[in-house]
C-alpha cells in the first residue's frame, strides 16, 4: 500500500499497466492473476453482514478505520471479480473518507472493463464501490 500516492496516481498507474497489454487474453490474465494474489479474507469476515450479493457471484467487503484512514479487505468466489476488487482496494484503501468519497474510479472504464460495472445484477461490483463509499460516509460522520 503506497502511503503517499493519491487515488488519481494509483488509477493512472493501473491504466499505464494495462496500456502495455495488447490482447484481451493478456488483460484478463493480468486481472485473474491479481485476483489470485489478493490476500485471502479470513473466514470470520465472511459473514452475512459483509456480503454484497450479486446474482451470480458473492463479494465480501470489510473496512477498518485507523488514524483517519480506511483500510478495505475483500474477497469473492469469482476470480475475475476478485481481480477487479483487488484493483479497487489498491486504489482506495489507505485513504481518508473525504478522498474516497471524491474518487471517480474512472480507471475501470479506461482499462476497458466497464462491462463488469454494467453487470450489476450478476457480480455486484458496482454495489461494492457504493459500499466502499458508504463506509467513507459512515467514518466521516464518526470522525467529525
Amino acid at each position: 500500500m503506497s502511503e503517499l500516492k493519491s487515488i488519481a496516481e494509483t488509477e493512472a498507474e493501473i491504466v499505464d499497466d494495462f496500456s502495455l497489454l495488447d490482447t484481451w487474453e493478456e488483460k484478463y490474465e493480468y486481472i485473474i492473476d491479481m485476483g489470485k494474489k489478493l490476500p485471502v479474507l479470513d473466514d470470520q469476515y465472511k459473514k452475512e453482514e459483509n456480503i454484497i450479493k450479486g446474482c451470480q457471484s458473492t463479494v465480501w467487503l470489510t473496512a477498518d478505520y485507523r488514524d483517519g484512514r480506511i483500510y478495505f479487505s475483500a474477497d469473492s468466489d469469482a476470480v475475475i471479480v476478485k481481480g477487479l476488487i483487488s484493483m479497487l482496494i489498491r486504489v482506495l484503501s489507505g485513504h481518508t473518507p473525504g478522498e474516497i468519497l471524491n474518487a471517480k474510479v474512472d480507471f475501470i472504464n479506461e482499462i476497458g472493463m466497464m462491462q463488469h460495472l454494467a453487470q450489476t445484477r450478476s457480480n455486484g461490483l458496482l454495489s461494492m464501490i457504493k459500499q466502499m463509499k458508504n463506509y467513507a460516509i459512515a467514518y466521516q460522520a464518526v470522525s467529525s
Binding site: W24, Y28, Q56, S57, A78, V79, I80, V81, H116, S122
Partner: peptide, 12 residues
Amino acid sequence: THPQDVGVLLDQ
C-alpha cells in the same frame, strides 16, 4: 472455476 468467470471468458 466459478461459472461466471468461464462465462466472461467465453464472451470475450
